[in-house]
Simulated assay, not measured.
Amino acid sequence: MFVLRISVTPSAVEHIKAELTRGLAEVKSSHRVEAIGRGLGLRSYAALRAASQQPAPPTATVTGAAFASYLKEHGFQVEPAHFYRAAAQVAIRRVLDAVPRLHIHGLGFGRPQRNADGTRQTSQQQYAEFLEHRQECLGEDAAEAFLRSLALLARVKETKTVRSGTGSYRLKHIAENYACTYPEGAPLGPDYVPNGMLLAAAVHMGFKHKTYVDDLGYDAPNATFNMSKTVIDDLDAEIRPRGGFAQDRARRRALA
């Protein structure tokens, strides 16, 4: 399970409204916006608007149950997941603004790849591809992967310094094997998690990260974090008991 918190800014409210208008067109607009207020911990949409316009907008815990309950009272059966995905996209947008080299597959541009005709990508081609990968971070699938990542990272202990063995690529594989749920109990994982969404979730939760370049000086897509390697090792063995790490650990312990 995860806990999702977002800053209730005017732009956040507008983004959630727009996503729910697209995804829940059958729900009356007046009911949708009132439900958003409840889902963000306010008594009404008017109270939500007033809170968002404060000099320092509050941080709200996203509560899909309150959102869905209000709509049910008014004759609409809606899964809380709709609200969580819309709010997750708000959180992801903030991370993209804070980390301008983040995209769906990780960080930076990497080495130029070969085109179909055998030539190397130009810098313009690389940048166009990078922008496409940035845009992929804002879809519903990416939002669910972000939430799966939050669920896993809620179990990870923060450390003072960035540690080895805490790579995003390893963590994304653990996250996509994690049998997690939405707060109300609906299944969320296991399912695919792109590297960039694991990174986005870690940044959103306040973890520090360290980036790298390869031996030719190109951006590496992965990062490491100020997380406990011991906790990650335990999670890896628990969640992927047939994985290489878990099997090696079991053999070492048997020999000991």
Rank of each mutant, 00 (worst) to 15 (best):
Q135K: 10
D117I: 10
D141N: 13
R114G: 01
V13Y: 06
P10R: 03
A145G: 10
V231A: 12
T230W: 05
A175W: 07
F67Y: 15
K208Q: 14
F245T: 04
A86W: 09
P58V: 08
R163S: 15
A50G: 02
R251S: 05
I92T: 09
A200Q: 05
N222S: 14
A175H: 03
G244H: 10
Y84D: 09
K17N: 09
V213P: 06
V8G: 03
L150A: 02
H31K: 05
L71M: 03
Y84T: 12
Q124I: 09
S29A: 15
E14Y: 03
T9W: 00
E144I: 04
D215T: 13
P183H: 12
F2E: 00
T224G: 14
R251K: 05
D236G: 08
S11V: 01
G64Q: 14
R134A: 02
I104Y: 06
L150F: 04
V8E: 01
G64L: 14
E26M: 06
Q89T: 11
T21K: 13
Q89S: 11
K72A: 15
N195E: 06
V95G: 00
G189N: 07
R134H: 05
L131K: 14
G118Y: 08
F207T: 00
R38G: 08
L20E: 10
Y182M: 11
S44G: 06
D97R: 12
T21Y: 06
M227A: 15
A128C: 02
T161C: 04
K157G: 04
G139D: 10
P55T: 03
F67E: 03
E144T: 11
Q53A: 12
A116I: 12
G108M: 00
L48Q: 06
A18F: 07
R32N: 07
E34M: 15
H204C: 02
G185W: 08
N115M: 12
A223G: 12
L131P: 01
H82I: 03
L48K: 04
H173G: 05
F67W: 09
Q53T: 04
P58T: 08
